[in-house]
């Protein structure tokens, strides 16, 4: 059996599935998946249609980090660590909003687990509501565009800083646009004892409003504009940065997606566009992209 699917029900072009397949491939199936409620869970784990070829558990929305910590403790106590690592495959809402308490606890105790945040920047399973990882200006069902408001007003929570502040031995970002980078980083995480946090930018074709055939292209533009810096930290030290050969303006990324289309018409659109370009510029300067 494959590590995941056939038989999963993800949309054509779904970034999650690209990421998940590469994570499992890198681990050669030697892992225990704890998966909180969300898109990935819904498309892969219906009773009678389980698409997983690795041991898999879904408990609740907000506790996957703790469930994985428990699996790790059991493997240790039972002398079964050779079977593989406990990993979490969680969405951005499960990570940065509702599950952040369990995540903080697991990071703090430094369990030997790999936590993958599949960041598609909103609650997509429930129809596109904003999470703490939704970027400013994104139109979601709970941050809709109105006569006054231009979509989300606020910022994207910095989960890399959160992980680094907890002293996690391995912290990295990646993207569904660069599967080889995902595989390399997951292998690296697997070789490190302790808590690894990897945040992978994943296109959501329905939520973002892009055609499935453009899934990789749009995710690559997030990298090339500097909006999604691809970085890697070992023991708190920055060890690699994915350089951008030809830096692109953020509007090239934004204009491809329905979720940002209002920014080019709304009275406050320019203000948000400036904020997003400033975010990209700051990332470029901070990491010397």
């Amino acid at each position: 059996m494959k590590f995941i699917g056939s038989g999963h029900g993800a949309c054509p072009g779904c970034g999650l599935m690209i990421a998940v397949k590469n994570v499992l491939k890198a681990l050669e199936g030697k892992c225990f998946v704890a998966n909180p409620t969300g898109c990935l869970e819904i498309v892969s784990s219906q009773y009678g249609r389980n698409a997983w070829g690795v041991p898999y558990i879904h408990s609740t929305f907000e506790n996957a980090a703790a469930v994985a910590a428990g699996i790790d403790a059991a493997l240790r106590a039972l002398g079964r660590k050779d079977e593989g690592k406990a990993i979490v495959l969680a969405g951005d809402g499960a990570t940065a909003d509702i599950g952040i308490g369990c995540l903080s606890g697991a990071m703090d105790r430094n369990h030997d687990i790999i936590y993958i945040c599949l960041d598609n920047e909103a609650y997509q399973n429930t129809g596109h509501q904003q999470s703490a990882l939704t970027p400013p200006g994104e139109a979601t069902k709970t941050t809709p565009v109105g006569k006054v408001l231009p979509g989300k007003v606020g910022k994207k929570k910095d989960m890399v800083a959160f992980a680094l502040a907890h002293g996690c031995p391995y912290v990295a970002t990646s993207s569904c646009a660069i599967p080889a980078d995902i595989r390399r980083k997951v292998k690296k995480a697997a070789s490190i004892e302790g808590f690894s946090y990897i945040q992978i930018h994943c296109t959501c074709v329905t939520g973002w409003g892009v055609d499935g055939s453009k899934s990789i292209e749009v995710a690559r533009l997030a990298i090339e504009t500097g909006l999604y810096p691809i970085v890697e930290f070992v023991d708190g030290k920055l060890v690699t940065v994915r350089k951008i050969k030809e830096k692109k303006p953020v509007i090239e990324y934004l204009k491809m997606q329905r979720r940002f289309s209002h920014l080019f018409e709304h009275p406050r659109g320019k203000e948000i566009l400036d904020i997003l370009q400033k975010m990209a510029n700051e990332n470029i300067a901070k990491y010397n992209l």
Binding site: G70, I71, A73, G79
Partner: peptide, 28 residues
């Protein structure tokens, strides 16, 4: 012997950790 003792960050976390451990075959 052959036991892991974990102080969780909350009772919610403690119960969740035991869900993972019990699912993996441990007496908890």
């Amino acid at each position: 012997e052959n036991c892991e003792y974990i102080t969780a960050e909350s009772e919610f976390g403690a119960a969740s950790i035991l869900v993972g451990a019990s699912a993996a075959g441990a007496r908890v």
